[in-house]
Amino acid sequence: MEHFFSLFVRSIFVDNMVFAFFLGMCSYLAVSKTVKTAFGLGIAVIFVQLITLPINYLLQTKVLDPMGLGFLSFILFIAVIAGITQLVEMVVEKFSPALYNSLGIFLPLIAVNCAIMGGSLFMQQRIGMEPDNTQAITSFADSISFALGSGIGWALAIVCLAAIREKMEYSDVPKPLKGVGIAFITVGLMSMAFMCFSGLAI
């Protein structure tokens, strides 16, 4: 139980997908202009991550490893992710057309979001870790904890950046830096701030 929670908290703050590992940056920078769309995308990413990571965990441990087919993992993972994203797209279109329209192209682009694929690849790396390592994923429950934590961490990061960028519209940024340049520097400063969490011993 303790490992479940410490992995969960650690994945949100210390091993944050955006600030520590730079995953999901492309859609991160493109969708973070307003808090509303950022929040919608964040929720979609959490949802996709929560479904695909445990499925990939089961695939890795029950199918690929016992049969020695580890090298097929890339193809299988991306196929699962693309399929689930298609499903999420259909569900969102049915239940919330407003959100579907505001997210536009970025909903199907979750399939190629590095954060989702990265989550599965990190999971693959961490299966072999020592159980006393707080990062280790030793069971199906751990994979759910990691999925939820990393998704929430990404969503937190994009909403924070969107909030800052909304305010920055009124600032006097030098012309060559306007837009994406100042966004990079802002994310760099936010990343520095999140490094404070690395001292957390949970």
Binding site: F19, A20, F21, F22, P174, K175, P176, L177, V180, G181, I182, A183, F184, I185, V187, G188, L189, S191, M192, M195
Partner: peptide
């Protein structure tokens, strides 16, 4: 060597490129 610097460096390169 830490992550934040990579972001700030790319931001500076964009600054030069767009200038």
């Amino acid at each position: 060597i830490m992550p934040p610097m990579a972001l700030i460096l790319v931001g500076c390169i964009i600054w030069v490129h767009r200038a």
